[in-house]
Simulated scan of single mutants.
Amino acid sequence: MKTNIRSKQVIIIVAMLLLVGFLFSREIKALVIPKQETAQMPAAQQQNTATISIEEASTTAKNLVSNATAKDITVLESKYKTAKAEEKIANAKVLAQKWEDFEQSVPSALYLEVVANSEPSLNNWLNTGNRFLKAFDNTQDSLVQPVMLQKANAAFTKALAIDSISNDAKTGLGISIVNGMGAPMQGIAMLMDVVKKDPKNLKANMNLGMFAIKSGQFDKAIIRFNDIISNIKATPDAYFYLATAYENLGKKQEAIDAYLNSKKLAANPTLTKFIDSKVTELKK
């Protein structure tokens, strides 16, 4: 019975986190999900063979930006398609940044992949992997999402092949594995290895804390986020996830305090309204 109650609580938290997703640089909807959902994850997400072209991604993204922006990008794309080999990569970089400026991570990531394939450096593959992870988090398309995760996994694998001790590559690869590109514990072990070597690695620690919430290990999540806040960096999202863990354990006052700290640091009107509502609810 207790497990069922916790599962329902996590589902509630998922909806809550999605409402304030603008706070976080990493994917929330993909990380904070009930244990049961993880167990039932389709095998296709772990070994996806589908793909998406730049043209397809661009067409979809153009429907999400203004007509003027879409026209500007069409002009840039025409230059990219007709450019000579030595100019093509420069044009791809411009398009990747242009799409990112308008928060369209899918086409942006695909153009970064073009750059990385032509100029396969550690930084290029790391940037590509991180952009694919962002696209994985941001897209609502259930067909595109696993493609983004698969491509992120491939990009970080290539980064790690260039530098086998890169903590950034290990962190990104670990995140992609836990989200469906392999056995979750393999990804957790990779993140733990990063933290062992670099105890103040914010990204690895944050994701370990979020994965603790995902698996219902709220006590471990609380320890992790309190450590992040005290010893690494007190961020709005660290406080928000800490509040989430406290709330799931029924520790209302601790949850309220953490939510209020998140609100104070973020200073965002939308988050303020949401947290004020949460605090009122917890005080009942």
Rank of each mutant, 00 (worst) to 15 (best):
Ala245Tyr: 00
Gly180Phe: 05
Tyr246Asn: 01
Leu249Gln: 04
Lys220Arg: 13
Thr235His: 06
Ala204Phe: 11
Lys251Met: 08
Phe240Ser: 00
Gly209Val: 10
Gly182Phe: 05
Tyr241Asn: 05
Leu160Gln: 14
Asn207Gly: 06
Val195Gln: 02
Gln186His: 04
Gly209Lys: 10
Met206Asn: 08
Val194Met: 03
Glu254Pro: 04
Gly174Ile: 09
Ile175Gly: 03
Ile228Phe: 01
Gly216Ser: 13
Tyr246Asp: 01
Val195Ser: 04
Lys158His: 14
Glu254Gln: 06
Lys252Thr: 12
Asp198Phe: 00
Met210Ile: 14
Tyr239Asp: 01
Lys220Asp: 12
Asn179Met: 13
Ile229Thr: 10
Leu249Lys: 04
Gly174Met: 09
Ile188His: 01
Ala238Arg: 02
Lys158Arg: 15
Ser176Gln: 11
Ala238Cys: 09
Asn207Thr: 10
Gln186Met: 04
Val194His: 00
Ile165Thr: 15
Met192Asp: 07
Leu160Asn: 13
Gly174Gln: 11
Gly216Asp: 13
Thr244Gly: 07
Leu202Met: 14
Ile213Tyr: 09
Asp198Met: 03
Met190Asp: 03
Met190Phe: 02
Ala245Asp: 05
Gly250Cys: 05
Tyr239Arg: 07
Leu173Phe: 14
Lys196Gly: 04
Ala245Ser: 02
Met185Thr: 02
Leu242Lys: 02
Lys220Pro: 00
Ile177Lys: 03
Thr171Gly: 08
Ile228Tyr: 08
Asn179Asp: 12
Thr171Asn: 13
Glu247Phe: 00
Leu160Ile: 13
Met192Arg: 00
Leu202Asp: 06
Asn248Gly: 03
Asn207Gln: 15
Leu242Gly: 01
Asn201Val: 03
Ala245Asn: 00
Lys252Trp: 01
Tyr239Leu: 05
Phe240Met: 07
Leu208Ser: 09
Ile175Leu: 10
Lys252Gly: 03
Lys214Phe: 01
Leu249Tyr: 01
Ile177Met: 06
Gly182Thr: 08
Gln217Thr: 10
Lys214Val: 04
Gly209Asn: 10
Lys214Trp: 08
Ile188Gln: 00
Ala245Leu: 01
Thr235Phe: 06
Ala234Thr: 11
Ala243Arg: 00
Asn205Leu: 08
Ala169Asp: 15
Glu247Thr: 06
Asn201His: 13
Ala189Leu: 08
Gln253Asp: 10
Asp163Glu: 15
Arg224Met: 14
Met192Glu: 08
Asp219Ser: 12
Ala189Asp: 03
Phe211Ala: 02
Lys158Cys: 11
Glu254Cys: 01
Met181Thr: 05
Leu173Thr: 14
Lys233Gln: 13
Ala159Asp: 12
Leu242His: 08
Leu249Trp: 03
Leu208Trp: 12
Phe218Asp: 10
Ala159Tyr: 06
Ile223Arg: 11
Lys203Asn: 10
Met192Ile: 01
Lys233His: 13
Ile222Cys: 09
Lys158Gly: 07
Ser164Gly: 10
Met210Cys: 09
Pro184Ile: 00
Asp237Pro: 05
Ala169Arg: 14
Gly174Ala: 12
Lys196Arg: 00
Leu242Thr: 06
Asn207Tyr: 07
Met190Arg: 05
Asp193Gly: 04
Asn179Ser: 12
Ala234Leu: 07
Ala212Phe: 12
Leu202Pro: 06
Arg224Gln: 15
Met190Lys: 04
Leu160Arg: 11
Asp237Leu: 05
Ile162Pro: 09
Leu202Ala: 06
Ala245Gln: 01
Met206Ala: 13
Met192Leu: 09
Tyr239Cys: 02
Lys196Met: 02
Lys158Gln: 15
Leu242Ala: 07
Ala243Pro: 04
Lys252Gln: 07
Leu208Pro: 08
Asn167Trp: 14
